[in-house]
Each structure stands twice: as structure tokens, then as C-alpha cells.
Design a protein around this nucleic acid. Structure first.
Length: 281
DNA sequence: CGCAGTGTTTTTGC
DNA sequence: AGCAAAAACACTGC
């Protein structure tokens, strides 16, 4: 489910409705969602805490509370964080955790595959959230220049694999890695070290552009992803290669192909995205 | 019915 | 260093 645009959309949709609210009760339905916290202690610590903000870093959501606490969430494949203003959320399968607020309203963590995780930490104490502390640059921040991308790309690994490496760029997943490479006209198997400066510049602007457009469209809903309001996104209608195997490329008409790169399904146009295996010589 | 595949990440062993 | 596979799990599609 959630890559940077989806997590950012959840952040933006939750912010106006949960910041300032006070948690009155909490329930943990799937204890594995808390890899580092005891469920009882977790709920006790959250009792009557007020939400003071919600931030995003890569694919992590960080909900700040008073008493210098932070609730860090990673939605992994199918996690949803949805706020409902009344007690009107119907019973549903796969509820991992529930947070009830004063004066009604509930924030619910739903996760079909149960890979998603919640951590309650003292502000900034991310020591045991390894994926968070090793995160690379935020692609929509000013620190993410094409030169920074060029540094990350210096490797014999396939460029698609590098884009999925969260220590090189934070927040790209399978959908937007494929879409960015298509826009930049770069074959997903091309070794990072083979990219020219102009290709890296094109890739850099493609990454920024596709992420911004996806956020403007509230993310991509294939199946499970929902915004913080429970709505689907719409960027699935604008995908150019992802899940378009066998359909014509919008640029040249060649049929989109699907291959495996680093164990992940990878979609590309064999005509627009070419690669000379001799580039490593 | 059975099995491969799915938006993520981490760990292990080569 | 980098790669592949496996592991968390539930469900869909062929």
C-alpha cells in the first residue's frame, strides 16, 4: 500500500481532525503491531495524552503527543489509519488498534496482512526503529538535489533496486520507482554506476514530479490503501507503466513488459527504456 | 483446489 | 558489497 504519496496523504487528512484531540481510551487488538511496547503499558502511557502534531519521514508517520511522547507508525503493505468523527465505524476485520478521543471520534489502525507497526517512544528516541534512523534524504525537500541522488546511485546494483533502498532516497516504493524510471526513460536493470549526469538529472526531476502529482491525486489505491478519511486515492488512473503489462506505452505504443528486479515485479517500456549491457566496461 | 503473486522491510547465508 | 531467499500474513486471481 503506502509509499510516500500515500503516507503524506494520510498525514494531511489526519492533521486537521486529530491534532488537539485528547485520547480517552485505547485498545490493542493485535499485539504484534507493537514490536517494542507492552500493550498495557502502551495504552496506559497514551491515556489522556493530547495529540500535538503529525509529521512524515519517508514512509513513517510520527504523531507527537504531550509529555514528549511520539507514536511512530509504519503501514507496510496494507495498513490504514482512519479517523471517524463519530462512533459509526462498522465492525471490520483486521483491526489492529483503536484510539478513542474525548467528545467522540476514533482513530483506527486496520491492517489486513498485519505487517504494520506502531512504536510509542520518547520524542526522538528512534534507536530501535532502525529503518527510521537509516533513512536517506527526503525527496521533496531541498536537501534532495540531483548531486545527492548521484551519490546514492554510485553502485553496480540495478537502478530500480537502488531506488527502493530507503537509505538512498526515502519513500519510494514499487509503484513510484517504476513510474519515475519510465518518465526518465531509464531501464530498471541499468546499473546505477552506468547512469550519465543527464540521466541522473532526468531521474531526479521525474522522482520529484511523480511524487508531487501522486500527492495531488491523494495517492494510488490498488486495493487496500485509504486516506485518513477512509477514501480511495485516484493516481491509479494516471499510472503509465505500473500494472499496465501488455498495454501500449502512451509515448510509443510498444507494449509494456513486466520483469523481476530484485525480487519485485517491475514494469517498463522496452522501447523507451533501453539499456546497453556493455555500459559496465 | 492449489499455488503464485501482492503496495514493505528485515534477517540470514552465500 | 550485493544478492537471493525467507519470514512476518491474508487474500485475490489464474
Amino acid at each position: 500500500m503506502p509509499e510516500l504519496p500515500e503516507v503524506e496523504t494520510v498525514r494531511r487528512t489526519l492533521e486537521p481532525v486529530i491534532v488537539g484531540k485528547r485520547i480517552e481510551r485505547c485498545a490493542v487488538c493485535h499485539h504484534r503491531a507493537l514490536p517494542q511496547n507492552n500493550a498495557d503499558e502502551f495504552c496506559r502511557s497514551l491515556y489522556r495524552r493530547t495529540i500535538t502534531g503529525i509529521m512524515r519521514r519517508g514512509k513513517y508517520l510520527i504523531i507527537s503527543l504531550d509529555q514528549k511522547l511520539e507514536l511512530v507508525a509504519h503501514l507496510r503493505m496494507t495498513g490504514q489509519l482512519i479517523y471517524r468523527p463519530k462512533q459509526d465505524l462498522p465492525l471490520q476485520k483486521h483491526v489492529s488498534a483503536r484510539f478513542w478521543f474525548e467528545n467522540n471520534g476514533e482513530l483506527r489502525f486496520v491492517d489486513q496482512r498485519k505487517f504494520g507497526t506502531l512504536y510509542l517512544v520518547k520524542k526522538g528516541n528512534y534507536g530501535h526503529i532502525r529503518g527510521l534512523i537509516t533513512l536517506g534524504p527526503e525527496p521533496l525537500s531541498s536537501e534532495f538535489t540531483w548531486e545527492v541522488l548521484a551519490d546514492g546511485v554510485r553502485s553496480v546494483r540495478a537502478i530500480k533496486t537502488i531506488l527502493l533502498d530507503q537509505t538512498k532516497v526515502a519513500g519510494l516504493g514499487n509503484i513510484y520507482a517504476d513510474e519515475a524510471l519510465y518518465r526518465a526513460g531509464i531501464h530498471p536493470l541499468k546499473p546505477g554506476a552506468c547512469l550519465s549526469d543527464s540521466e541522473i538529472e532526468a531521474l531526479h526531476s521525474s522522482i520529484v514530479a511523480v511524487l508531487k502529482e501522486a500527492i495531488a491525486n491523494h495517492g494510488t489505491t490498488i486495493r487496500d490503501y485509504r486516506t485518513g478519511s477512509g477514501d480511495t486515492g485516484s493516481f491509479q488512473n494516471k499510472l503509465e507503466v505500473y500494472r499496465r503489462t501488455g498495454k501500449p506505452c502512451g509515448n510509443c505504443g510498444t507494449l509494456i513488459e513486466k520483469i523481476k528486479v530484485g525480487g519485485r515485479g517491475t514494469h517498463f517500456c522496452p522501447n523507451c527504456q533501453r539499456w546497453d549491457p556493455g555500459c559496465m566496461d
